[in-house]
Every structure is written in C-alpha cells, then in structure tokens.
C-alpha cells in the first residue's frame, strides 16, 4: 500500500527547478505550456483510464443498474424495473442476514486470533535462530497456493472417511469427526483453513514492519530497564501500528469478499451454515438465474467494502497515509 509521492509536489518542484533553464519552454506563454502539459497528461493516462473504465467502472455501473431490475439474465438488457425491491428483499432474506453475521464472526476471529498469531510468529522469526529463513519460507508458502487448490487440499484432509485430520485425531484417541459436514463446526473448520492460508502473508508484513524499527530504540528501552513485555508493549507495538492497521484493513476486505475458498470447500453448506455473501450471490446469479437480485447482493458487497475502505482510510489510517493520499494541501 505504498503510494507514490503526491503529484502536486512533483509538479511544483519541476516548475521552479527546470523552467528557467528549459530553452524549449522559454518562448511559450505559461497558458500554452499548461495546455501542452494537459495534452501530454491525458495522452499518457488514456490507456489506463480506458482499461480502468472498461474493466472496473463499467461492470460496477452495470451491476448497479441491473440491481434495480427483476432480470433472469437473458437478453441484452433488463426491462422489468422494480426500484429498490431487490434491496428490501435482502433485508428479509435469512440467508443474506446470516451471511452478514458469518462475515462479522469471521472478521472477529481474524482480528482476535489470526492476526495476533501472525504477529507472534513474525516476532519469533525476527529473532536470531537456526533455520530462520527456512521457517519464513515454509510459513509463507500456503499464501502462494491458489484458493481453489487450498480448498481442494483441505476437502481431502478434512474428509470424513480417510482424511489426514481424522487419522491424526485417531492417533490421539479422538473418534472420527466430520468437520465440514456439521453445521456447528463448519465455520471453525473454514476459519482454520483461512488462517492456514493467510497467516504467512500477515506474518511477512509484520516481519517487514518489525525490521524497519531501528534497533537503537529497542536497545534504548532495554537500557532504561524495560523488560521484554514492556519493550514490546511500548516500543515495538506502537511502531508496528501502521503495519497492523493495514493488515486489519486487508483482512476485513478479504472477508467481505470471501468466495472461492468457501465455494470449493463447502459450497456454503451444510444447509447454508458457511455461506458468504459471495456464495449467495453466485447461487442466485448462476443457479437461480435471478441476476437482478444477485447484482443487488454484489452492490451491497461493493458498498460495504467501499464504505469500510473510505471510513478506515479517513479515520484509522489517516496518519499512515499522510502526505501520500491525504493532506495534499500541506504538501503544496
């Protein structure tokens, strides 16, 4: 999430430093030069803007448009306008409400267990120990796998018959379990798989954040008599703040959009016990052919992510992004 330096700053530096020595620009009026600058800017931005518009903005607009229609997806354009009915329907849809609760609980689990675990492992692997690089590599490896491969892998591991998990549990005397088949346990199983896949990613972020903390600060704290806990609590943790805030951000956004892992692992089942908004959207769009309603669900997912992203950047990450995307006025 590192952002490039603010454009105005670059432009002002360019203007003051180079214009007197620039022979080509000397003969032009400032207005003409500004105009030429704009042409250049637009020319260079055009490919990116066109691609962004076609691949990102247009689908978003299209989804928003079709979310106001009752539409089975056939034909080129929806015709049966029903206003906000798809959205009010969602309020009474037990599955969608359930999706939101399940999303919230997954976020809770992630923030309370997954991120602290990653942080602990990162700090552990920051210490000088034999085979440190190997551990880092191994812990990061699951993140490299695609979600689908991860899900297929775990359907095998957690399968009720001859799965590895049951074999291991059998060794320590726990009888056969059917993790993914019980509505009561499926969310825990899902969370464990999610954690397995993503803790390495957060660990790497924390590790990078920890290594950017100068050792002098730690040493100074130790000289002042701070123990390991106090050093962590009052030096390491506050200085890891920006990293922690960004991992929370990524974790929440990921959970809102969780789809592939769940779809392959459980299909949202048993009896909707592990369904997420993404899975519900797919079910309605591709199985029930209620594309209008599915679009409405996707719009809600988009708005949830957008509102969270904007609010979080505005209020929580304000200081971290200072000078990059906020406070341009100060830079000028």
């Amino acid at each position: 999430m590192t952002s490039p330096p603010a454009p105005p700053r670059v432009r002002s530096r360019h203007a003051t430093a180079s214009s007197p020595r620039d022979p080509a620009a000397a003969g032009e009026s400032p207005a003409a030069r500004r105009r030429r600058n704009w042409v250049t800017i637009i020319l260079f931005l055009l490919p990116a803007i066109v691609l962004f518009g076609l691949l990102v903005l247009a689908p978003i607009a299209l989804a928003m448009y079709s979310s106001f229609f009752k539409w089975n997806g056939f034909g080129l354009v929806p015709t049966n306008f029903i206003g906000f009915e798809n959205f009010t329907r969602m309020l009474n849809d037990k599955i969608v409400i359930g999706d939101l609760w399940r999303g919230l609980s997954l976020i809770g689990f992630s923030l309370l267990i997954q991120l602290p675990l990653s942080l602990a492992i990162a700090l552990l692997l920051n210490q000088k120990m034999r085979g440190r690089a190997v551990y880092r590599l191994i812990f990061f490896a699951p993140y490299v796998l695609s979600e689908v491969i991860t899900a297929v892998l775990f359907t095998m591991i957690l399968s009720p018959g001859r799965g590895l998990a049951n074999e291991l549990l059998g060794l320590i005397g726990i009888s056969e379990s059917t993790f993914l088949s019980e509505p009561d346990t499926v969310m825990y199983a899902l969370f464990i798989v999610m954690t397995w896949k993503y803790f390495g990613f957060h660990m790497i972020l924390y590790l990078a954040g920890r290594q950017s903390i100068p050792n002098e600060l730690i040493e100074a704290a130790q000289i002042d008599g701070a123990g390991a806990w106090k050093t962590f609590r009052h030096v390491t943790l506050p200085l890891l703040g920006p990293t922690i805030r960004i991992t929370i951000f990524l974790s929440v956004i990921y959970t809102v959009q969780l789809f592939d892992l769940v779809y392959v692992l459980t299909g949202g089942g048993p009896v909707h016990a592990s369904e997420t908004l993404g899975v519900t959207m797919y079910e309605f769009g591709f199985r029930r052919f209620q594309v209008g309603y599915a679009s409405a669900i996707s719009v809600v997912m988009f708005l949830l992510s957008l509102i969270f992203a904007l609010g979080y950047q505005r209020f929580v990450m304000r200081r971290d992004t200072e000078g990059a995307i906020t406070n341009m006025r100060a830079a000028r």
């Binding site: 903005l57 978003i60 959009q257 988009f302 992510s305 992203a309 950047q313």
Partner: peptide, 14 residues
C-alpha cells in the same frame, strides 16, 4: 484513490 483501491480489491469477483 480510495474508490480505485476498493474497486481493485473488488475487481477479483467480477
């Protein structure tokens, strides 16, 4: 920028 960031995250599902 925020819209762009959010949209990029979302782009995966579309």
């Amino acid at each position: 920028l925020s819209v762009a960031a959010a949209a990029l995250f979302l782009a995966g599902c579309g």
